[in-house]
Nucleic acid binder design. Structure first.
Lengths: 315, 315
DNA sequence: CAACTACATTAGCGTTGCTGATGCTCAACC
DNA sequence: GGTTGAGCATCAGCAACGCTAATGTAGTTG
């Protein structure tokens, strides 16, 4: 197997025309150059240069090897340059998956920031539920996933981030959505138990959110009377506005508020889902992914700031 | 600087999908593979593979490096193959220079044999005088030179083969060319001194052959009376046939004998020039050149056989 | 819980690939 | 004709490389 370092020495020898000059150019000793070329000749079994009084000249075999060496060394430099570009975020790609409401709220500003910082990284974003995103990360299908999970869900089943490296971004509280003219709108310090006789609108009963709503209601002493199910929170809002029932909606899904809906936080605290960003475990997190995690953390912090100043406790 | 052996290991790892499988494929230990990849990652500063339960998968940086590695390794294999081809005389070229009469007599059968043995070596032949051929060998302009030189010429000037590796092929005797009806044609045991009153035709006075003729005549006690000079031995024969004078002509230049010319060898011995094949000195003689030297030796031996059986002593 | 299979780590040892010193050859120059 | 200088070769020494063999660690499987 040829040795790139030796090829480089050989090339320098030919271009310089002498071992000594090549040694100077490479900051080697003449001895090292001599030994390198001798070893190359031993490996190839061919005389590569003819030794002359004033230096050396390539033989035919040497000229042939040199021709290839130029190509090989150019290729090697190109490879190193492209790796450096990826590491320096001047190239490469980043594939991100997000749950729907995260993709609508957190991702747009994060994508904008990331693109501004690293315009040459090709960014793709797909949406899906956490239980789909986890496997896609594990399979290497995407590099980064925006997930949520509910505390205690590990009892009910596998958490989507199991086997992944997940970083907590924020806690997304679930608020009560009431029809605008609902009698409880004016009540301060609304408790979940106050809603025990309401009809409920929620996401499909197998979804983590719905399971968590039911679990929380049961903790408050009642089983929710589910009047309707929809996995789209805009539809849920429409149903609430139409008076079909009340709902617990994550704050991230309330970025667009239906005019016929009033949002109230719960006392003593709203149930909440934990939003995390997950990658494959281990040290092998791509620079682009690492950078995006940082961006997402900033965006999440900003989101928490804004959320604190607009807490819909009483309105 | 990248290392081709490590790149090969890395490629095998990716294609096999695990360190252990790659180790088996390469007849290495799993440890060696692990260390190779770890070193490659340290050198590039990038995680190249993600370690998984069932093996490994390349990261983006790894996939990029792999793409380049395929090219580089292919190039390297091509280089090795081409070198092997040259060494095995299945490729390459050979540039030969010859003095004119050697080019007409010795080279044609040598070229024919060489081409039959190594049809894929590109062969070129140029003609010139020995004093031009020597520098062309030294400058690397040609690989092999067919030369002649006269014993004792080192006193008169620089021999063309100085500083070269010259192998003796044959001694080419110079015979006397007489007009067919010349009175000395019937004389047996012709001596050079018998020609002291003749007029002479010879090559130009600065040429080694002419110098040698003059020197030999002086050794025999007379200065030749030069009636005409021509560097073309066919012209010399024509002049001799026309009765302009007599001439000393090397046997190699007598392959085509003019009908009006009779050739006689001299007693006690004809003066002769030494025909050699020369290359650059040192061990770096190309395989093609080495092979051609062997072919020329065979051709020269055959020529000596034929010459012995047709010695024109008396006719 | 044990066995299996993956990669990681470590010690050991021969090889590689430098440096620095020395030797050799040839050409040029007193 | 001896000295000097420029070139390559060679050698000892030493650090780094790159392998093997043995062992460690983690997750999966029976």
């Amino acid at each position: 197997m040829l040795n790139l370092a030796r090829l480089q020495v050989f090339r320098e020898v030919v271009t310089c025309g002498s071992f000594s000059a090549a040694a100077d150019a490479l900051s080697y000793t003449q001895s090292a150059v001599s030994q390198s070329v001798a070893r190359l000749e031993a490996e190839t079994g061919a005389a590569l240069v003819v030794r002359d009084r004033k230096g050396v000249r390539p033989t035919e075999a040497g000229a042939t090897l040199l021709r290839h060496a130029e190509l090989i060394l150019t290729q090697a430099r190109a490879a190193e340059a492209e790796l450096d570009a990826i590491l320096g975020l001047r190239a490469g790609r980043l594939r991100v998956a997000s749950f729907p409401s995260g993709g609508e709220t957190l991702m747009p500003p994060a994508v904008a920031r990331f693109r501004r910082a690293h315009p040459e990284v090709a960014l793709t974003l797909v949406e899906g539920e956490p239980e789909e995103i986890g496997p896609r990360i594990r399979s290497g299908d995407v590099d980064l996933g925006l997930l949520y999970e509910f505390p205690g869900a590990h009892r009910a089943g596998l958490r989507p981030s199991v086997g992944l490296r997940a970083r907590r971004l924020l806690d997304d509280p679930m608020h009560v959505a009431l029809p605008a003219e609902h009698p409880l709108v004016g009540v301060s310090r609304l408790r979940l138990a106050d809603l025990c006789h309401e009809q409920w609108v929620q996401t499909s009963s197998t979804s983590p959110c719905a399971r968590h709503v039911v679990r929380t209601c049961l903790d408050s002493g009642f089983a929710p009377d589910v009047a309707f199910e929809s996995d789209d929170y805009d539809t849920v809002q429409g149903l609430v506005a139409a008076g079909v029932g009340v709902a617990l909606i994550p704050q991230l899904a309330l970025s667009r508020l239906h005019s016929g809906v009033v949002v109230r936080s719960l006392t003593p605290s709203s149930p909440s889902r934990r939003v995390t960003v997950a990658t494959l475990p281990g040290a092998g997190v791509a620079p682009a992914a690492r950078s995006m995690i940082q961006v997402l953390s900033d965006v999440a912090a900003r989101h928490r700031e804004r959320a604190r100043s607009t807490d819909p406790a009483v309105d």
